[in-house]
């Protein structure tokens, strides 16, 4: 006769088994991939043109150790963060206004739904002429990448706030400022962070493109530089770094979405 305790144990064991299978399967696939990768690498003549996993990791380690990778990352990240911060601030303000006022929304909508379709990189052409190839230009590009997505998502978030919350706050005597800070912003936060999450991914793409085109520092420059020297391992290292940074920032923003109740928003991120 099985007791309820042994039922529970069986359940836990089953779960563990499932997790173990997943982990083993993943590990195996990773090994298999590395194997195939190594084979492909060997079939290329020059090791430098298509390095295998070991060579790539070795290079990655080298570049981390001598700090090059970290410095390049810092340059890229700094540009992203500054532009991102400004873009998000502008986006949240614009989006909130649009969400709260029908008129503002109708007035701003044509601009937003037109300018956001212009690829941010395309703006690099005039921006380079106006402010040169320094930091300002790249930051401007990131602002462009960020502001529209964040504004649209903020607006959606503000719209999604249930009117009962607003009425409740008004009946409690909330001032305009209090309503905005205590109801509108937190209420739309899940959407805002979702927009920020999307914008962050795009920002990485934009900064890489900008650094490939016109930069003397950053991960994109690292890639371009390595290209001139036909050094693919270094490129792979930079690419791996980009993947890691992108993953971390995504996880952080995703947890912020969750914190503010956005469980339902996480599904269709575009993946």
């Amino acid at each position: 006769m099985t007791t309820s305790r042994s039922h529970a144990t069986i359940g836990i064991l089953r779960k563990l088994r499932r997790v173990a299978i997943t982990v083993v399967a993943f590990a195996l696939s990773l090994v298999g991939l590395c194997f195939a990768w190594s084979l492909a690498a060997i079939s290329f003549d020059a090791q430098n043109l298509f390095p295998g996993p070991l060579a790539s990791l070795a290079r990655f380690g080298e570049l981390m150790a001598n700090g090059e990778l970290l410095i390049a990352s810092l340059y890229s990240l700094m540009r992203i963060f500054v532009g991102f911060a400004i873009g998000c601030a502008l986006g949240v303000i614009a989006g909130s206004l649009m969400g709260m006022s029908r008129i503002v929304r109708a007035a701003l909508a044509p601009y937003i739904h037109f300018i956001r379709f212009i690829p941010p990189v395309a703006w690099f052409a005039p921006v380079l002429l106006w402010v040169g190839a320094g930091e300002a230009g790249k930051i401007i590009l990131i602002i462009d990448t960020t502001v529209f997505i964040v504004a649209i998502n903020t607006m959606l978030g503000v719209h999604a706030i249930n009117v009962d919350k607003i009425r409740m706050a008004l009946a409690m005597g909330a001032t305009r400022a209090q309503l905005f800070l205590r109801i509108i912003l937190p209420g739309a936060a899940a959407y805002i962070f979702t927009g920020m999450r999307l914008a962050m991914g795009n920002s990485f793409a934009t900064i890489v493109a900008a650094e490939l085109l016109a930069s003397t520092s950053g991960l994109g420059f690292m890639i371009t530089n390595a290209q001139n020297l036909l050094e693919v391992p270094t490129m792979f290292a930079a690419i791996l770094m980009l993947g890691i940074l992108g993953y971390i920032s995504d996880v952080v923003l995703e947890s912020l979405v969750r914190r503010f109740g956005g469980r339902y928003l996480l599904e269709s991120k575009g993946g």
Partner: peptide, 27 residues
């Protein structure tokens, strides 16, 4: 609307989901 006429709504939509129960009461 004003604090001299407080409203209790039907359902839970006026509760602030990002605040704890206590913080909701304190609102």
């Amino acid at each position: 609307p004003g604090p001299d006429r407080i409203v209790v709504f039907q359902g839970d939509r006026s509760l602030l989901g990002w605040l704890t129960a206590l913080h909701n009461i304190e609102f």
